[in-house]
């Protein structure tokens, strides 16, 4: 990737730039969903794209998740490369049958006859005081399903770079954009080449323990590592990026060096993605561990509305710091 021209870009602008680029590179690509056209998307991601590409490629659809996700699957079968925007993961449940029973199974159940090259993007996560039915983090739940791939861009760079390779993928790909990240800014290069979406990435190197996170919790985890550094603890921060498939190789490489790990996941604890990562470490790196693996997840309650309640229910920097100290037996 070229670093010659760096431009300050928000996560939102990065997703928009990725959509624009994909539309220009491949005329089979189109965007469909509720309010993506004239309104510019409920998170303002597609602002201006209707004017640039017209209503056939930036398609406002009827208010029906099962209809437009199902239609996206049909369009993919018909030779198109749809990007379907579902407003949030909460409402994707109205299209769950289409995603799980159709998109995820069709290639296998047809004996390899029908690929479904669809990309479904949606916002996820809490933190905007919209109460439980707008605040679920179900990406780990989707990561349970064979047949789909699940991506969670936690940086502006990934928001910009993940879409094109996802569209090149012959399998259905779900991209979860944590809504708390849309205003995050970073310096970005103008061009992307050979962007790998299958690998986890070390976002901060460290030697005392591995903090493993993704998506909306990544920034908090990096901030927690910064605080830990102040008290002399060197935390490595690993960004999973792909939740299905999981890059267990990079996870184990890190854990085998640091011998301790804490998973940070905005999903609910029981049966969570964090639980899966912990189980993988137990299976593959048990004898390298110096302490039980810890985790910081959301409290197992529907996310409350009020700000102080909502903040307390999901992973925050002090909780991550405390969990790190716990596995280091360094708590006071």
């Amino acid at each position: 990737m070229s670093t010659a021209t760096l431009v300050k870009t928000s996560y939102r602008e990065a997703v928009r730039a990725a959509i624009r680029e994909a539309m220009k590179r491949d005329n089979r690509v189109f965007l469909m969903g509720e309010d993506v056209g004239e309104y510019g998307g409920c998170y303002a991601v597609s602002m201006g794209l209707l004017e640039e590409f017209g209503p056939e490629r930036i398609r406002d659809t009827p208010l029906s998740e099962s209809a437009f996700v199902g239609a996206g699957i049909g369009a993919a079968l018909g030779g198109m490369r749809p990007i379907v925007e579902v407003m949030t993961v909460n409402f994707s449940l109205l299209a769950l049958d289409q995603i799980l029973n159709t998109a995820a199974t069709l290639l296998h159940m047809s004996g390899g006859q029908f690929n479904v090259p669809i990309v479904i993007r949606m916002a996820t996560g809490a933190g905007r005081q919209l109460a439980a039915q707008h605040s679920h983090s179900l990406e780990g739940w989707y990561a349970h399903i064979p047949g789909i791939k699940v991506l969670a861009p936690g940086t502006v760079e990934d928001a910009r770079g993940m879409l094109w390779p996802a569209l090149q993928d012959p399998d259905p790909v779900l991209i979860f954009e944590n809504a708390a990240l849309y205003n995050m800014e970073a310096e970005m290069p103008g061009e992307f080449k050979d962007f790998d979406i299958s690998k986890a990435k070390i976002r901060r190197a460290g030697s005392d323990l591995s903090l493993i996170s993704y998506g909306g919790s990544l920034g908090k985890t990096l901030a927690a590592a910064e605080e830990l550094a102040k008290v002399g603890i060197s935390a490595e921060v690993l960004d999973l990026r792909s939740l299905r498939p999981l890059d267990t190789e990079t996870i184990m490489d890190s854990v085998r060096r640091t011998n301790r790990a804490v998973i940070v996941d905005e999903g609910w604890r029981t049966g969570s993605l964090a639980a899966e990562v912990m189980a993988s470490i137990m299976e593959q790196a048990f004898y390298d561990l110096d302490a039980p693996v810890g985790r910081v997840c959301s409290e197992e309650v529907p996310i409350p509305y009020a700000k102080h309640m909502e903040e307390a229910a999901i992973p925050q920097i002090p909780k991550i710091v405390a969990a790190a100290k716990e596995v280091l037996n360094a708590h006071v």
Binding site: F68, G70, A75, G78, N101
Partner: peptide
């Protein structure tokens, strides 16, 4: 022939999507 779906009526949204893409193309 689209591979049959077991959940009743769930093959109809994909059918419509295929038809819309035919129209646009």
């Amino acid at each position: 022939i689209f591979t049959g779906a077991s959940a009743i009526a769930s093959h109809i949204p994909p059918a419509v999507g295929t038809a819309i893409s035919m129209k646009i193309r």
